[in-house]
Design a protein around this nucleic acid. Structure first.
Length: 613
RNA sequence: GCCGACGUAGCUCAGUGGCUAGAGCGGUGCUUUUGUAAAGCACGGGUCGUGGGUUCGAAUCCCUCCGUCGGCUCCA
């Protein structure tokens, strides 16, 4: 039985084989790094003036197969770092030379720290390192820690998949290389399954479902990154927002309202302008003495509401919430369906509290997150986003240390599985990020409580403590969905468009068997009986076959479809057709109208995930 | 913004230098009055993303811009 290590070695070996093939086709190629990733591998390559395009894949793959067929052994050798640097110079591999120089100097080639503990281990091993290892297959020799297979003949099934630009060492000030991606598995069968699954996943892409289910659209005339929501999509937005606010109301949040434009000065004070100002949309006024911008976030506004009165420690914590749309001039290449847009509706909120209250407040927020996502049947990863050693953060170091510890303690006391991401903090403080993944495995940051010691100070926010002394409150930023748009991207894909009854844009569809007067009259009777229950019921009285109308209802993933005709009119009872995922029983239910309305209403209110019919 | 791919009817797509650019679905009209996943017939519907170029001739080849997609960078 072959194990994960073998698969890993295989993918790694394929990266080398791909590089050897590229070197054969473009002898002047310069190589960056070539690691394994989920399901495959990539290699960063710089061809100077020329570029590789997807049409070249055939030739590269052909060359790779030649290398595989000739079954070249992977030969391990060691060099001292200095000898390795000499090699890199002679081989005209400047990127490798840079890596080796870093290894010599710092003992690591890492630029971004993902996990401090992991980095610690790497550091302790590598700082003692004075030799580096190389692997050679055929004429191709590469700096590499390994491990590799015994020989090129042992690799399984692979396919080159895509090509992308990638900045050397992930810095956009560095030259951009070309990143060649491939996927690889032990067998052709597994490779095929993987590619088929990928193809299937496309059917549940939120952009596709958004169109099919008539939820939202992006009109080129309105602009990219500016989604428009149809009546159906708006139901989802409104219902989710209602729930998001309801949960926070329970822990003391009050609604506030703020306008959508503000003076640039406001953000200069908060510290946002310096960091993000270039990505904002400015607003022109007829006689403006101040620069105005479309608001890109809401915290400074809420701070001004706090600052409008003198505050006592008795008033704290003060909690404001507001679901409102912010505007950011995201770069075109960064836009992505609903998950990255220019008009971002945040279910935003801010707590102003004393430092003693932080723990309790954070703890409440974590519970709210739990409840919300449990109701929606979504599992989220927990990431603690802390600062790194760079100087992109504001505020005193000791406050940061304190804040990070508080966050970690709360998460641990809640027994949540988490990981720490150094360098992912906001500039004003550390945060807990709850993360979902889309169908293609891309991370979507949803709920996020964030601690902030910086902004209250910059705005001079105060409260008077029990000794009559002025104190600065602490802020906790919090969004439960993050943004409604991004949340919907994750949620539509999570449910594959099969929304529970309480969220379904259309909960019940009545299908008439014929266009007789008494049939439509019966449909209206049902509608009348449902008045006051706040249900979303539609009638399909079109002149089409019953089969066709059922099909349309199914395609819209309506939870309950009810056919009405002579039989129902006579008995006064209906047989709701239940959407498949909502029920286990396939039995036919004959049910009175009032009873049916009551059940659907209960399911809406309790936010249940399955039908109780 | 950068690298690569793509852009034909409302939707999904066919059409790779040569007649008036096609199909299915959807839409509209008529016929039909239907019983749990697609009734029949007819009719509409296109500046082939945009602007320019090459050519006797361009949806098709080249360039510009716009937009979409896959990555990179960024993400308050």
């Amino acid at each position: 039985m072959k194990n994960d290590n073998h698969l890993e070695a295989m993918r790694h070996s394929l990266a080398h084989i791909m590089a050897s093939a590229v070197l054969k086709l473009w002898p002047h190629a310069k190589f960056g790094v070539g690691p394994t990733i989920d399901n495959g591998f990539y290699y960063d390559i710089d061809l100077g003036e020329t570029t590789i395009s997807q049409e070249d894949f055939v030739n590269i793959e052909k060359e790779m197969k030649v290398i595989i067929k000739s079954d070249q052994p992977f030969i391990l050798s060691e060099k001292s770092i200095d000898a390795a640097i000499t090699w890199a110079k002679e081989a005209k591999q400047p990127y490798k030379e840079e890596l080796l120089n870093d290894l010599k100097r710092a003992g690591t080639t890492k630029v971004k720290n993902i996990d401090s503990d992991e980095l610690g281990i790497i550091n302790s091993i590598e700082s003692k390192l004075d030799k580096v290892t190389f692997y050679q297959n055929g004429d191709f020799i590469d700096l590499c820690r390994g491990p590799h297979l015994k020989s090129t003949g042992e690799v399984g099934a692979f396919k080159l998949t895509k090509i992308a630009g990638a900045y050397w060492r992930g810095k956009d000030s560095n030259p951009q290389m070309q990143r060649l991606y491939g996927v690889a598995f032990e067998t052709e069968g597994e490779l095929k399954d993987y590619l088929d699954n990928l193809e299937d996943a496309k059917n549940f892409d939120h952009r596709k479902l958004g169109q099919e289910l008539d939820l939202f659209l992006i009109s080129p005339l309105v602009g990219s990154g500016l989604p428009l929501f149809t009546p159906r999509g708006t139901v989802l937005r409104d219902e989710l927002n209602k729930y998001s606010q309801e949960l926070r109301k329970k822990i003391g949040y009050k609604n506030v309202w703020t306008p959508h434009i503000a003076k640039q000065k406001l953000y200069e004070m908060s510290g946002h302008w310096e960091k993000f100002g270039s990505e904002w949309l400015s607003v022109k006024s007829q006689e403006s003495h101040d620069n105005l911008v479309l608001k890109p976030m809401n915290c400074p506004h809420h701070q001004q509401i706090y600052a409008s009165k003198q505050r006592s420690y008795r008033d704290l914590p003060i909690k404001y919430m507001e679901t409102t749309t912010d505007y950011r001039d995201e770069k075109a290449g960064e836009l992505l369906g609903l998950s990255r847009v220019r008009s971002i509706t945040q279910d935003d909120s801010h707590i102003f509290c004393t430092s003693e209250q932080i723990d309790r407040c954070l703890s409440d927020l974590v519970e709210v997150v739990r409840e919300f996502y449990k109701t929606l049947d979504m599992d989220l990863e927990v990431r603690l986003s802390f600062r790194d050693e760079t100087d992109k953060y504001l505020g005193e170091a000791n406050l940061w240390t304190k804040a990070e510890k508080m966050i970690k303690d709360v998460v641990e006391s809640k027994k949540l599985k988490y990981y720490i991401a150094k360098g992912d903090a906001a500039f004003y403080g550390p945060k807990i990020d709850f993360i979902a993944k889309d169908l293609q495995g891309r991370e979507l940051q949803l709920a996020t409580p964030q601690l902030d010691f910086v902004q209250p100070q910059r705005f001079g926010l105060k409260y008077t403590d029990e000794n009559g002394q002025e104190q600065t409150p602490v802020m906790i930023h919090f969004a439960l969905m993050g943004s409604i748009e991004r949340f919907l991207a994750a949620y539509i894909e999570h449910t594959k468009g099969k929304f529970p009854v309480w969220l379904a844009p259309e909960q019940v569809r009545l299908i008439t068997v014929n266009q007789e007067k008494q049939t439509l009259k019966f449909a209206n009777e049902i509608l009348n009986k449902a008045i006051g229950f706040d249900l979303r019921i539609e009638v399909d009285n079109s002149n089409q076959s019953v089969g066709k109308k059922i099909r349309e209802s199914e395609l819209y993933k309506v939870p309950y479809t009810v056919v009405i005709g002579e039989k129902e009119i006579k008995s006064g009872k209906i047989q709701p057709r239940i959407r498949e995922d909502l029920t286990k029983s396939k039995k036919e239910t004959n049910i009175g109208i009032e009873e049916f309305i009551k059940i659907v209403t209960d399911e809406s209110k309790s936010k249940s995930l399955s039908s109780s019919l």
